[in-house]
Design a protein around this nucleic acid. Structure first.
Lengths: 164, 164
DNA sequence: TATTGTTATACTCTATAACTATA
DNA sequence: TATAGTTATAGAGTATAACAATA
């Protein structure tokens, strides 16, 4: 049993998983952004492209729901992808209010490249961990992610709360 | 050996440490911000307070260097702390251009409370990991953090690059 | 001449509300 | 009446440059 003296020194931040994960997470996101920049892509756009690729023809509202964003935000994101020639707004087959969002062939060419960059970042991050340690780390992080109510494969980015 | 077909499916994001650490890191930072809010503190202010507490009497420029921020940014941060009654600008004993930044007694009262909140967040994050697993996780993250050139105990926050 | 702190400005992100056209 | 998409506006956060006082 430990008694806590009133002037006990504060525990160092760097010994907390929550601090380390947040410190490394922001660094990792920044480096990924830098790696992606030569492709003219940012992480948000990449994440959105991935989710469009998983199921083409979704409406902007569906994509916003999946990613936990407001539909207003999705407008600008799709605008950007469209301007970059990576996404198309097609007429929705059954709802004339909505668009069906599709990838362009350029996006299909670019996605594997971006994925390769993600692999490079991954390799850099876990560089000096053994294979067993990498598996351990990913396993532990995935368990926490699943339990703390993260939608699998959805990155909050720097975006805030979704629908009210 | 694996041959990569041109239309190979993209590897799921959630199997990458870099994705998971970034996803969890941002979530962790947001939860910490929410936990700190009742104290009228945000994570940046808490981080700054910790670094002031480690060595009182530093100049704003010294603190900015330590945290990797621009001195312009430090002005507003210290302004906020001063307005909250948590920091004092005193005359620097040897340089009349500079201030010596000190904690107030209110800050000394608040810091342990904030630290307790950080402990709660930590407990919540690693809730269903065994003691051995927690040690493993922290060890692996700390190794990566040390290698990837993170200043120990310095959180990049959402702040960008420091001095040019 | 260089450095400390400050202010002003612009730029990016995000949050909110209101509008239109369809359902 | 509710929903999909859009637009406008306001607010936070941050980057840059320029300034006064002091070294």
């Amino acid at each position: 049993m430990r008694s806590v003296s009133p002037s006990a020194p504060l525990p160092p931040l760097e010994s907390r998983a929550s601090f380390l994960v947040s410190q490394l997470g922001i660094q990792s996101a920044q480096r990924f952004a830098a790696g992606l920049a030569p492709l003219g892509l940012n992480p948000n756009q990449f994440g959105l492209l991935v989710h469009v690729a998983r199921a083409e023809g979704q409406s902007q509202q569906q994509l916003a729901d999946t990613l936990g964003l407001h539909r207003n935000t999705m407008v600008a994101l799709i605008d950007d992808l469209e301007a970059r020639g990576l996404a198309e707004r097609r007429r929705h087959p059954r709802d004339r209010r909505a668009y069906a969002i599709h990838l362009t062939s350029e996006a299909r060419r670019l996605l594997p490249e971006a994925s390769r960059i993600a692999d490079e970042q991954e390799a850099l991050l876990v560089e000096d961990l053994s294979r067993a340690e990498r598996t351990q780390l990913i396993g532990l992080l995935a368990r926490i992610s699943a339990r703390t109510g993260q939608r699998a494969g959805v990155h909050p980015g720097y975006a805030g709360p979704g629908e009210p």
